[in-house]
Protein backbone atom coordinates (compact mmCIF):
# COMPACT_ATOMS: atom_id res chain seq x y z
CA UNK A 1 0.00 0.00 0.00
CA UNK A 2 2.85 2.39 0.79
CA UNK A 3 4.83 1.44 -2.33
CA UNK A 4 8.54 0.67 -2.73
CA UNK A 5 9.64 3.63 -0.60
CA UNK A 6 7.53 2.40 2.30
CA UNK A 7 8.98 -1.11 2.00
CA UNK A 8 12.55 0.26 1.89
CA UNK A 9 11.92 2.44 4.92
CA UNK A 10 10.53 -0.57 6.75
CA UNK A 11 13.65 -2.58 5.92
CA UNK A 12 15.84 0.33 6.95
CA UNK A 13 14.11 0.67 10.32
CA UNK A 14 14.25 -3.09 10.81
CA UNK A 15 18.00 -3.09 10.23
CA UNK A 16 18.46 -0.10 12.53
CA UNK A 17 16.59 -1.81 15.35
CA UNK A 18 18.66 -4.97 14.84
CA UNK A 19 21.82 -2.91 14.95
CA UNK A 20 20.61 -1.08 18.04
CA UNK A 21 20.11 -4.42 19.74
CA UNK A 22 23.70 -5.37 18.96
CA UNK A 23 24.92 -2.02 20.30
CA UNK A 24 22.95 -2.60 23.52
CA UNK A 25 24.48 -6.06 23.70
CA UNK A 26 28.00 -4.68 23.22
CA UNK A 27 27.44 -2.10 25.96
CA UNK A 28 26.03 -4.76 28.32
CA UNK A 29 29.14 -6.90 27.72
CA UNK A 30 31.68 -4.11 28.17
CA UNK A 31 33.23 -6.01 31.11
CA UNK A 32 32.77 -9.59 29.90
CA UNK A 33 36.17 -11.24 29.44
CA UNK A 34 36.81 -12.44 25.89
CA UNK A 35 33.73 -10.74 24.40
CA UNK A 36 34.24 -9.35 20.89
CA UNK A 37 32.26 -6.40 19.52
CA UNK A 38 29.43 -7.55 17.23
CA UNK A 39 27.93 -5.54 14.39
CA UNK A 40 26.15 -5.97 11.07
CA UNK A 41 27.54 -4.77 7.75
CA UNK A 42 24.85 -2.14 7.28
CA UNK A 43 25.50 -1.27 3.63
CA UNK A 44 25.64 -4.83 2.31
CA UNK A 45 22.66 -5.90 4.42
CA UNK A 46 20.63 -3.04 2.97
CA UNK A 47 21.76 -3.93 -0.59
CA UNK A 48 20.26 -7.37 -0.05
CA UNK A 49 16.95 -5.51 -0.36
CA UNK A 50 14.34 -7.16 1.80
CA UNK A 51 16.13 -10.51 1.85
CA UNK A 52 16.41 -12.65 4.96
CA UNK A 53 17.56 -11.95 8.47
CA UNK A 54 20.81 -10.00 8.88
CA UNK A 55 23.74 -11.76 10.48
CA UNK A 56 26.09 -10.29 13.05
CA UNK A 57 29.86 -10.53 12.77
CA UNK A 58 32.79 -9.40 14.92
CA UNK A 59 34.13 -5.94 14.21
CA UNK A 60 37.76 -5.75 13.18
CA UNK A 61 40.33 -3.11 14.00
CA UNK A 62 39.40 -2.46 17.63
CA UNK A 63 42.00 -2.51 20.38
CA UNK A 64 41.76 -5.70 22.46
CA UNK A 65 42.26 -5.28 26.19
CA UNK A 66 44.06 -7.66 28.52
CA UNK A 67 40.91 -9.65 29.30
CA UNK A 68 40.32 -10.33 25.58
CA UNK A 69 37.45 -7.83 25.38
CA UNK A 70 37.45 -5.21 22.60
CA UNK A 71 34.28 -3.19 23.30
CA UNK A 72 34.92 0.52 22.83
CA UNK A 73 32.32 2.46 24.80
CA UNK A 74 32.97 5.54 22.64
CA UNK A 75 32.19 3.67 19.44
CA UNK A 76 29.03 2.19 20.97
CA UNK A 77 27.83 5.57 22.30
CA UNK A 78 28.27 7.08 18.86
CA UNK A 79 26.37 4.24 17.19
CA UNK A 80 23.64 4.42 19.82
CA UNK A 81 22.99 8.09 19.09
CA UNK A 82 23.47 7.66 15.33
CA UNK A 83 21.00 4.76 15.09
CA UNK A 84 18.40 6.60 17.14
CA UNK A 85 18.68 9.67 14.88
CA UNK A 86 18.56 7.61 11.67
CA UNK A 87 15.53 5.79 13.00
CA UNK A 88 13.91 9.12 13.83
CA UNK A 89 14.48 10.37 10.27
CA UNK A 90 13.16 7.14 8.74
CA UNK A 91 10.10 7.13 10.97
CA UNK A 92 9.33 10.76 10.06
CA UNK A 93 9.55 9.86 6.36
CA UNK A 94 7.33 6.81 6.84
CA UNK A 95 4.93 8.97 8.83
CA UNK A 96 4.59 11.42 5.93
CA UNK A 97 3.98 8.48 3.57
CA UNK A 98 1.20 7.21 5.85
CA UNK A 99 -0.25 10.72 6.11
CA UNK A 100 -0.45 10.89 2.31
CA UNK A 101 -2.37 7.62 2.15
CA UNK A 102 -4.64 8.80 4.96
CA UNK A 103 -5.28 12.07 3.15
CA UNK A 104 -6.26 10.11 0.03
CA UNK A 105 -8.66 7.96 2.06
CA UNK A 106 -10.22 10.99 3.71
CA UNK A 107 -10.70 12.77 0.37
CA UNK A 108 -12.55 9.70 -0.88
CA UNK A 109 -14.98 9.85 2.01
CA UNK A 110 -16.18 13.30 1.02
CA UNK A 111 -16.94 16.08 3.41
Amino acid sequence: MLGPLGAQLERYMDLLSTRQKLVASNIANVDTPGYLTQDIDFQSEFQHALGGAPHAQPVEGLAVRNDGNNVSIDRESRLLAENALRFQAASSLLHSQIQMVRAAIKEGQGS
Binding site: M13, L16, Q88
Partner: peptide, 27 residues
Protein backbone atom coordinates in the same frame (compact mmCIF):
# COMPACT_ATOMS: atom_id res chain seq x y z
CA UNK B 1 33.31 3.80 39.37
CA UNK B 2 33.62 1.46 36.40
CA UNK B 3 30.48 -0.38 37.49
CA UNK B 4 28.60 2.91 37.90
CA UNK B 5 29.67 4.05 34.41
CA UNK B 6 28.71 0.68 32.95
CA UNK B 7 25.31 1.00 34.58
CA UNK B 8 24.84 4.49 33.14
CA UNK B 9 25.82 3.29 29.65
CA UNK B 10 23.15 0.60 29.82
CA UNK B 11 20.58 3.15 30.98
CA UNK B 12 21.49 5.32 27.98
CA UNK B 13 21.09 2.34 25.65
CA UNK B 14 17.65 1.56 27.06
CA UNK B 15 16.48 5.15 26.76
CA UNK B 16 17.68 5.33 23.12
CA UNK B 17 15.82 2.12 22.28
CA UNK B 18 12.75 3.35 24.16
CA UNK B 19 12.78 6.48 22.02
CA UNK B 20 12.88 4.34 18.87
CA UNK B 21 9.90 2.30 20.04
CA UNK B 22 8.01 5.48 20.84
CA UNK B 23 8.77 6.74 17.32
CA UNK B 24 7.31 3.56 15.85
CA UNK B 25 4.17 3.96 17.94
CA UNK B 26 3.85 7.58 16.81
CA UNK B 27 3.56 6.35 13.21
Amino acid sequence: MGAARGYEANVAAISAVKDMIQRSIDL
